[in-house]
Design a protein around this nucleic acid. Structure first.
Lengths: 338, 338
DNA sequence: GCCATAACGACAAATTGTGTCGCCTGCCGT
DNA sequence: ACGGCAGGCGACACAATTTGTCGTTATGGC
C-alpha cells in the first residue's frame, strides 16, 4: 500500500492543538523522519494544503521569519476515528449526569463534544433499547441538595488561565457583608468542595494567604506580572493543615483518633458498605445496637457527620469528642426543651 | 487532491465499534454513495484490507452468508486526531481527580484512554508550568469521607449489560445478616448515591420491587429470558416517591414545606453561596443570628442536614419538624446528660 | 450436483504522487 | 537602493499507484 495515507495520518497526529504553534515544515519533516518517512519538503507542503482542504479545523499562520506553522485551530471538532465503545459511551453519559449538578458548567462544556459522541453512539445502536439508558439510571445526592452557586464563566476562565500561567490577577470581590473590593493577588491553588470552587491566593506584596469563593468574584483580569509563590507552598499540605477551615478540627492534634461508638443497627447498615476506615470493626451488641470502632482523622466534618445521626449514635471515645457532643446537646436542650 | 484519501478517512469514520457488526461491503458502498463517493466494490475491498494493515484495531469477520463485516475491534485504541485543547485536558484531569474516590473504578477505567491523552497533552506543552497543574488543584469532600465499597468489576459489567439488554439476571446476593441467596430478577434501574451503586429490580414472577446494593452482589449471570417490566414503571418517579428510603420523609406529604429557622451567622454563611431553594431569604436578626426561610421538599436528608448543624440552628416552622427535632434532642439528652 | 453469491488474484489503462526546476515575494545586510 | 537569501509555491514530466474489468475460487442453498 502506498504510504501516503500512513504519512498523512501521522501528520494529522503530529499537528498540535492551537495555542501551541511551532510546527514548521522543517520540524514536521524531522518528526516524520523519526517515524521512518523520508519525504521531500514540497510533498509535505502539498500534503498539508490537501489536508486543510479536507478537514475543518486545520489552519496555518505565518511566523515572523515568513515560514508557515500548521496546527489544529482552537475550535476544531473532536475527530475520534475509532469511535466509542458502548461502555465508554455509557461511562460518558454517566459522568455527565453525575457531574452536571456538581461541576461548573464551564468545565463540563469543554467536554461537550465527547458527551455528544457518546449520545450519538448510543443512539446509533439499532436496538432502540439503548436510548432507554438514561431513563434506567439515576443519581441521588447523598446529602441535602443545595443549589450550586452561579459562577461567571469568564471569571472561571480567567482565573484558571492565570493560575496555570502563574500570572498575577486583579479581581473584584463581593464580600458577604462588606462591599465590593478590588485586589491584586498571586493565585496559588484551586479547590473544589462539593459545588463550590475556591481560589487560594496571596495578596500582592503580602504573604497573607486568602481564600476567595469563586462565585463572589465578579470580575477578573489577568495582569502582566508573574505571580509570586511563597517558598515551599503546597496546596494539599495547606488543606491538610486545616486552613480551609473544615478539614481539621480546631486545636486538635493531627494524629488519628480511635473512635468508639454505639450505633443503632439500622443506622449502622451503611457502614458495612462504606466503612469509616480500613480497620473499622462492627461488633453486634445488645438488641438492635452495635459497637463500632475505627481509626481516623478527627475534624469538623466528622463532628457534623456524627451529629446528623442524632440519637442513633452514642460516642464513647475519645472522651474529648464525647464532651464536645454533650455540650452541643446541652445547647440543643436549652433551645428545644425549655 | 485524490479522493482516495478522503474516501478512506470516511471509511474509518463509518466503521462501527465492535459489538455492532453489520457493515458489509455493500452497506459501506451505499453509505459512501450518500456522501458522494462512487466507488467499485473491488476498490472498497482493497481499501479495507489496506486500512487493516495500517491501523491497529481494525478487524473483520465472516457472517453466516459468507459476506465479510468490518469494524473497530473492542480494544482498538482511541484515535483522536485533532488532539485535546488545553482546556479539555484540564477538564479531563479535573473529572478524573473528582470522580476517582466516588465512581466505580470499572466505569472510570473505560475513560482511561482519554485521561491519558489529557495527561500527555498537558505534559507536551513546552512550558513545564502545566505539569504543575495537578498540584494546583485539590478536591475536598464536603462530607465525612467514607471508603467506597468494593464492587466486583465483572458483576458491574454483567449487571449493566443485562439492564441495557433488558434481560433477566441471576444474582448471588450476600445479605447483611442472613446468608448468601440466589435470585432470578428483572433489572429495572441503576441508582448512584454517593459512592454506592444500587440495582432496582423485581424478583421473577413477582411484582415485588427490591433494592440490591451492588457491592453485595457476589456473582451475576445474564439469563436468556427477556426481563419483564411492570407497567408504567419510571425510575425517577420511583425515587421521587421515596422508595429509596431517604428521599422522602416517612408519612409526610409530598408537598413542599415552608422552612423557617434561626441560624448562627457563621454557620449560615454557606447558605449565601449555595441556597436551599430559589426563594430562600436571609434576614439578619439580633446579634450573630439570622432568620432564614425557604420552600423545599421535606425528607430524611433535610432532617440529617439540620441535625448536623447542632445548636447553630433552631428550626421554628413547620411545627412537626421542630417537634421531631425536639424528640431527638430529648433522646440525645437522655444519652449524654444523665 | 448445479447455481448463486461473495471474495479475491491478475492485468492494463488511467489517474495520481513526487522530485526537480524555476519564479515570486518579502526581508536582511551591505 | 540594490542584490542576495530563504521560504513558499506553480508547472511539468516521469514514476508509481489506483482502479475497473475479468476470471477464478470457495461455499451454502436448492
Amino acid at each position: 500500500m502506498n504510504d501516503q495515507i500512513i504519512r498523512q495520518f501521522h501528520i494529522l497526529n503530529l499537528l498540535p492543538r492551537y495555542p501551541i504553534i511551532r510546527l514548521t515544515l522543517l520540524i514536521l519533516q524531522d518528526q516524520l523522519l523519526d517515524k521512518g518517512f523520508t519525504v521531500g519538503l514540497r510533498t509535505l507542503q502539498r500534503d498539508l494544503n490537501a489536508l486543510r482542504d479536507v478537514f475543518v479545523g486545520i489552519d496555518n499562520c505565518r511566523n515572523e521569519d515568513r515560514s508557515v506553522s500548521w496546527f489544529w485551530s482552537e475550535n476544531a471538532p473532536v475527530i475520534n476515528l475509532s469511535g466509542l465503545t458502548i461502555n465508554q459511551s455509557l461511562s460518558f453519559s454517566l459522568v455527565k449526569k453525575y457531574l452536571t449538578p456538581l461541576f461548573p458548567s464551564v468545565t463540563l462544556n469543554e467536554l461537550q463534544p465527547f458527551f455528544e459522541q457518546a449520545d450519538a453512539t448510543l443512539e446509533s445502536v439499532q436496538d432502540n433499547v439503548l436510548v432507554q439508558w438514561p431513563k434506567k439510571i439515576a443519581v441521588v445526592q447523598p446529602t441535602q441538595a443545595l443549589l450550586p452557586p452561579k459562577v461567571n464563566p469568564s471569571v472561571q476562565k480567567t482565573v484558571t488561565a492565570a493560575l496555570l500561567a502563574e500570572m498575577q490577577l486583579e479581581i473584584h470581590y463581593q464580600h458577604l457583608t462588606a462591599k465590593e473590593q478590588t485586589y491584586k493577588i498571586n493565585p496559588l491553588g484551586f479547590v473544589l468542595r462539593g459545588t463550590i470552587s475556591y481560589l487560594i491566593a496571596t495578596k500582592n506584596n503580602t504573604a497573607e494567604m486568602r481564600i476567595f469563593a469563586l462565585q463572589r468574584v465578579k470580575k477578573a483580569v489577568e495582569l502582566t506580572q508573574k505571580a509570586v509563590q511563597p517558598d515551599g507552598f503546597e496546596l494539599q499540605k495547606y488543606i491538610d493543615d486545616g486552613h480551609m477551615g473544615f478539614n481539621t478540627y480546631n486545636q486538635c492534634s493531627k494524629d488519628p483518633i480511635q473512635l468508639k461508638m454505639i450505633f443503632e443497627e439500622g443506622a449502622s447498615r451503611n457502614l458495612h458498605e462504606t466503612p469509616l476506615s480500613e480497620d473499622q470493626e462492627i461488633t453486634p451488641h445488645s438488641d438492635g445496637y452495635a459497637l463500632i470502632t475505627a481509626t481516623l482523622q478527627e475534624n469538623e466534618q466528622l463532628f457534623w457527620w456524627l451529629l446528623s445521626y442524632g440519637a442513633n449514635v452514642e460516642v464513647l471515645e475519645p472522651e474529648a469528642l464525647r464532651e464536645k457532643i454533650a455540650n452541643t446537646v446541652q445547647n440543643l436542650a436549652d433551645i428545644y426543651l425549655k
